[in-house]
Amino acid sequence: MNAVTEPHHPYYIPRPSPYPIVLSAALFLLGLGAALRVNALAAGWWALGLGALLFAYVLFRWFGEVIGESRAGLYRAQEDRAFRWGMLWFITSEVVFFASLFGVLFYERNIAVPWLASFNAAHTSWAPFSPWPHFTAHWPNSGPAGTPFEVVNPWGIPALNTLLLLSSGVTVTWAHAGLRAGRRLQLKAGLLLTVALGLTFLGFQAHEFAEAYRDLGLTLHSGVYGATFFILTGFHGLHVTVGAIMLSAILVRAWKGDFTPEHHFAFEAASWYWHFVDVVWLLLFVFVYWL
């Protein structure tokens, strides 16, 4: 429908490209390496290393090609819309991924743990047969055979981290405003601040993990609490890392003079991703650390 309203130009169809198949090969090597490695097979390191190198190389080249095409002016309104919708659907799939992890947290906490404890309820037919006679339902919990641990105090580093990520959401928006208004310095400063805040967040997070392992006895082995805690915060941290890399690349491009006030899909994609990661953290703070 939209095509009616604008002058026609042929949709840009890229030439045959080696990058997709090489990227698949890189992921194959990474997958193979992981599968070998977890089974303590030495060849896994080789596959992992080679896969990682190939992965980084292909991404660099592929994005380089796309950036080149963008500079050559091949992307107009329709291509731009395709990229935008592609990114939005990709973020949607990420939302489902995190929603599943939160679903797991909900299930373990509100269904599995009380269910296990329910076998001990007095005067039921279960009680004489309970597999875990001393287990009671409470949260945090490392399960009937778990070891004791302490939880991270939400009002220490996590609260500070919340503040950091929220401010980074503001700074990236400020950078966007600068870009749209043609204030390049504001763009660069905003991006730099955002990346710095993100990296600080990651530093604190790493410190918190180390402390959890060293002082609190909170590890991956700490039953369902440890498992859900680390998978949620771990995957979030991974996404912050990816987001920070994306924003750094945008920063480099901004420095080199890319992006115009009208034309800056890559910036927007990275900032959407960053906001998504932000929102996930808020939910994490509430459901993992606080409640």
Binding site: Y107, S142, G146, V224
Partner: peptide, 25 residues
């Protein structure tokens, strides 16, 4: 995909998503 990650974690990294001993199911 999230489930598969948890399976690998249970198999090799000592988590208890799917094991009652750690409060999982």
């Amino acid at each position: 995909m999230a489930g598969c990650v948890m399976q690998i974690a249970d198999r090799h990294f000592g988590t208890h998503f799917f094991s009652a001993a750690g409060g999982g199911d």
